[in-house]
Computed example of a mutant assay.
Amino acid sequence: MSTAPRPRIRPGAVLANAAVAVGCVLFLGGFVLAAILYQPYEVPTDSMAPTVSTGDRVLAHRMGGDEAHRGDVVVFREETWGDVPMLKRVVGVGGDTVACCDDRGRLTVNGRPVDEPYLPGDQPAAPYSFSAEVPEGELFLLGDDRQNSIDSLTRLLGEDSTGTVPAEAVSARVEAIVWPVDRIGMVPGAADFGDLPGGTSPDGPLRPILWAAAAGAVLILGGTAYGPVSRRLRRRRANR
């Protein structure tokens, strides 16, 4: 009794199938991980311009307010601020004294001047002089467009108000703009805050996640292309 010959196992096909399998894990895993760790938001106002502007879609790394560092652009929700998600920059944490301005128009934190290159134009760090002590467990938040932002500085003018927000009101830190297309990119950090005690926040996992998803896409495309390409090459060799 004759038996059918076993199909020849081609190493290239095995590698291609493995590449597709690994690619699917990286590609889909990247999207799942991003959905778990990140929350999309639409920017409601221009108070954080030019860093982010009205209508921008951003990705924010989910975190608690106890993880917020000076310089972070955070998403928070606090009833007395309107009880809707808002974006502002942390310039002071519990125990800090935030003041403005020095002789160069800069913000000072605990007496140390801070350069803020993200401020629009030649705008000073605040529209008027102030000094505020940040209570423990609270955050002092400012918009990047200091002339047109309702923030801790504005609230500081109210009676019996420190202008601060409870750290527990923070739910995420903005890391990237994902829409519109011409503004896609990572939100730049505020490096000058890094010289203060506690430093700035470490980079989030978004970049590695995006690289993993991109590598997965390349492996999937390469693996699926192997079959048609190898068959075409075999036909060419057979026709010679």
Rank of each mutant, 00 (worst) to 15 (best):
L206G: 02
V187W: 02
D160G: 00
A126F: 12
D96Q: 11
A35S: 15
V229S: 10
R146E: 00
P117I: 06
V134W: 00
V170W: 02
A225P: 04
Q147H: 06
Q39N: 11
A214I: 05
A19N: 05
S53I: 09
V75N: 01
V84L: 11
W211Q: 06
G95I: 09
G204W: 01
D122A: 15
R104L: 12
A213K: 12
R106H: 09
E42V: 14
L196R: 12
D203P: 12
M63Q: 15
H69Q: 13
R112F: 01
S230T: 11
D72A: 08
D66Q: 13
R240M: 07
A99I: 01
M63C: 14
E78Q: 15
E79Q: 14
G23D: 02
G30L: 03
A19G: 08
G71T: 08
N110K: 08
C101W: 03
E175W: 06
G121S: 07
I150G: 01
D160T: 00
L87H: 07
G29S: 11
I177K: 04
P120V: 08
R173W: 09
L28M: 10
V52G: 06
Q147M: 10
G64H: 05
I220V: 15
P205S: 13
D182R: 15
G222R: 12
V229H: 10
P197W: 08
W81V: 00
Y41D: 05
L221R: 11
E175R: 14
S131T: 14
P197D: 10
G121Q: 08
D115C: 05
A4E: 13
V229D: 02
P202N: 07
F27S: 09
E79L: 12
I36Y: 07
T45L: 04
P85Q: 13
G158T: 00
G111A: 05
E175Q: 14
A125Y: 03
K88E: 01
E175N: 09
A176G: 09
V22M: 04
A49R: 13
R6V: 10
A167L: 12
A35T: 12
A18L: 15
R146L: 04
R235G: 07
A13N: 08
R6F: 10
I36R: 15
Q39K: 14
D144F: 03
P197L: 09
V109I: 13
A125H: 06
A19R: 08
V218D: 01
A4G: 06
P166E: 00
G95D: 08
D122R: 15
P7F: 10
A172P: 07
E116P: 07
V43Y: 03
E42Y: 06
T97V: 14
C100Q: 00
M1I: 10
A176E: 07
G199F: 15
R106Y: 04
I209W: 02
L157K: 13
L87K: 02
N17A: 14
P7G: 12
N17F: 10
L233T: 08
L139A: 03
M48A: 12
A21G: 10
P202G: 11
E136V: 05
R234Q: 13
S47N: 06
P228C: 03
P188A: 14
E116S: 06
H61R: 12
T51F: 08
T80F: 05
A169T: 07
D151G: 01
S131F: 04
G29Y: 05
G29N: 10
E136K: 13
G143S: 06
G121V: 06
V52T: 12
A213S: 15
F27I: 04
C100R: 02
R70D: 03
L153W: 01
V43W: 03
P85S: 15
L26H: 03
I9E: 06
E136H: 12
